[in-house]
Structures are given as C-alpha cells and as structure tokens.
C-alpha cells in the first residue's frame, strides 16, 4: 500500500505538485490514511476550531459543533444542519436576464435566459462563490451530496461517531417551516 507525505498532498491540493509525483499518486495503489491526512491538512487551513467530520467541497465542511453536525465554510460561516441543503442558508445571485447573463457570457456565447438561469451561491461570510447552477426556472437547487456519515464512520472507517443521527434529507422540512 502506498504512502504519501502530507507535504506532497498539500502540494497536490494547491496544484503545484510536480507532474511525475502526481502521476505516481495516480498510478499507485491508494494510501489508506489519505482521508485522515486530508482532514488534518484542511483543519489547519480553515478559520474555525471545530473538528471536521467530512470535507463536503474544497470550501465547505461538515463539522461537529456543540453536539451537532453542521456545514461551515472555510471562513467559519455556518450553514446549519448538514441534512438540510446548505444552499437554503446561503446568499444567492441569479442571472436570469440578458444584462446580467451578459456579464459572464458575451455575444455569440450568450445562453437563452428563457431556457436557463445561472444561480450563484455566495458565502455570506467571505464572498466565496461556492457553487454555480445552470438550470431552467423551476428546478429545485441540487442537494449535491447528503453523506451517510454514521455508516461511513462506523462501517467503512471502523470508528463510529459518538452521537448517531437519523440519516434523512431535511430540506423539505425547512421549506415547510417557511410556509407555515
């Protein structure tokens, strides 16, 4: 089983690992401790102290905070329970007319805004653009990944999390709260 230095994994994340070393990582059997090393690296880079349970994206993390599992941006801004699509707690900028769409796509490259809108999800804390969706009106935002965290830690990593929670998508429950 291969083993890679933490420093090389950091270079890989930063896009500066030399190509031969990157190829080595691609071709070798995978290192068993990659997840732990990756979490350790990201923990050192984020601007919060709570332990990372899972890097959801390069910018968003599921963390343990006060006995709860919440999504946080690397800047520390919180997005609430990881079982609710974090997008519901973000800022959103939508390009659904030619003027705003034209700031990104010009002339011949302009998509038809009656067919598609561009949704930019912005972190209220740091202004990072966390995701962009290009979908027609009517499309609910993608809940890209709802991890089964307890199964992952208990059965795949062999170290159960102390407080199991129900594995369920709570997004529509949040919507229901908004409509009461």
């Amino acid at each position: 089983m291969a083993e890679f230095h933490k420093a090389d994994i950091e270079k890989l994340i930063d896009g500066v690992l030399p190509w031969p070393a990157t190829q080595d990582m691609l071709k070798s059997s995978k290192d068993e401790d990659r997840f732990d090393k990756y979490v350790e690296i990201m923990q050192e880079r984020v601007e919060f102290q709570e332990p990372i349970l899972l890097p959801l994206t390069p910018m968003l993390f599921i963390v343990a905070e006060d006995g709860k599992r919440v999504v946080k941006c690397s800047c520390g801004h919180g997005f609430g329970d990881y079982r609710v699509n974090w997008k519901l707690s973000s800022l959103i900028h939508v390009r659904d007319d030619e003027a705003s769409m034209g700031e990104i796509y010009k002339g011949r490259e302009l998509p038809d805004v009656a067919w598609i809108q561009l949704r930019e999800y912005i972190c209220p804390g740091c202004g990072s653009q966390l995701e962009v969706e290009a979908v027609p009106r009517g499309c609910p935002p993608d809940f890209e990944f709802l991890p089964d965290l307890d199964t992952f830690y208990r059965e795949w990593l062999g170290r159960p999390l102390p407080d199991e929670v129900e594995y369920r998508d709570l997004t529509l429950d949040r919507i229901a709260e908004w409509t009461r």
Binding site: P111, L118, V132, E133
Partner: peptide
C-alpha cells in the same frame, strides 16, 4: 441554447 449544469464548486460552465 443553454450551458451545462456544471458549475462545480463555483466555476462557470463552458460556453454553448
């Protein structure tokens, strides 16, 4: 008419 729904991690999709 459209671009792909591929704004992965905040990128903008490729042109039509």
């Amino acid at each position: 008419k459209i671009v792909g729904n591929h704004g992965m991690y905040g990128a903008y999709p490729a042109v039509p």
